[in-house]
């Protein structure tokens, strides 16, 4: 697959430095540092409970880290809640999709950022109109604008979640297992979207279980185990087995040493 040129001499889009968080004495994330450049996809790999989702939730504002710092375009920032993250143009597509099932696509797309009329009332017609525009771009077959999203298929729900991230001009996109609930066809749709977003210079953190996904979609991969960072590698320099070794044994490729 063609890779875009990523200039790693410039300031990274995101730098998470020395992040720690613990829950009841368990170090869920233990001195982890990762970074992300414009137009780059960085995969976060690891077992269940390795700490990858927790790390990324600190960036998206769902959790607050105990220590460490976050830099966006080289500037240190405070992210205390999801609103702060959104203000820094960080958008997240959660594994559970984070959609309110009882609301329609437009209401979900604009949830927390509704368009309002001059009287301050929510403008459903304007939101539906905007929703139709962006869905026309992302998923032209999408027609169910009036139904609650519970009536949608997995792929359609995914496109609503993606539309939400794309509509608000994300610079940094976090995708937590974006293809976990999808069929092959829909997975293809997501990978095409990722290529398109990369071309626009958006940086993407992709959390995945699937090594093949990561090998295909990502430029670099950061592997975590037991809350610690095993290492960050360029995917072109490693094999599937190298990555597996990092995930399972926590060993660096090329080295025979243990942790």
């Amino acid at each position: 697959m063609a890779k875009f040129d990523i200039n790693r001499d410039q300031t990274p889009l995101v730098e998470m430095r020395d992040i720690c968080i613990s829950f009841g004495g368990v170090h869920a994330v233990d001195h982890v540092s990762v970074d992300l450049y414009p137009g780059e996809v960085v995969g976060l790999l690891g077992h269940n409970g390795a700490g990858k989702s927790t790390l990324i939730k600190i960036l998206s504002g769902a959790y607050q880290g105990d220590s460490g710092e976050i830099l966006i375009n080289g500037q240190k920032v405070e992210i205390n809640n999801p609103r702060d993250a959104r203000a820094h143009k960080i958008e997240t597509i959660y594994q559970t999709l984070a959609l309110a099932d009882n609301l329609d696509a437009a209401s979900n797309l604009f949830l927390g950022r509704e368009l309002v009329t001059s009287f301050g009332l929510v403008d459903d017609d304007a939101m539906e109109s905007e929703c139709r525009k962006i869905m026309g771009r992302l998923n032209p077959n999408f027609k169910k604008f009036a139904e609650p999203v519970s009536a949608l298929s997995g792929g359609q729900r995914q496109s609503v979640a993606i539309a939400r991230a794309v509509y608000f001009d994300a610079r940094i996109l976090i995708m937590d297992e974006p293809t976990a609930a999808l069929g092959p066809h829909e997975t293809q749709m997501v990978s095409e979207l990722i290529q398109q977003l990369k071309a626009e210079g958006i940086g993407i953190f992709l959390i995945s279980h699937d090594i093949h996904d990561v090998m295909e979609l990502c430029d670099r991969a950061s592997v975590m185990k037991n809350g610690k960072l095993v290492g960050t590698v360029d995917v072109d320099d490693v094999t599937d087995d190298d990555l597996l070794g990092m995930i399972i044994l926590g060993k660096q490729p090329g080295s025979s040493g243990a942790e």
């Binding site: 998206s60 769902a62 809640n81 999801p82 609103r83 959104r86 997240t92 959660y94 559970t96 999709l97 984070a98 959609l99 309110a100 099932d101 009882n102 609301l103 209401s107 979900n108 949830l111 927390g112 950022r113 509704e114 309002v116 301050g120 009332l121 929510v122 459903d124």
Partner: peptide, 28 residues
């Protein structure tokens, strides 16, 4: 009815009822 259907407060009430986590993650 206006509160329920045409204000942000109403929208957030229904969103929270439908999926509290989603509402929270949307910054509500």
């Amino acid at each position: 009815t206006i509160l329920a259907k045409r204000t942000r407060l109403g929208r957030y009430i229904f969103a929270t009822g439908g999926n509290p986590d989603a509402a929270e993650l949307s910054g509500i």
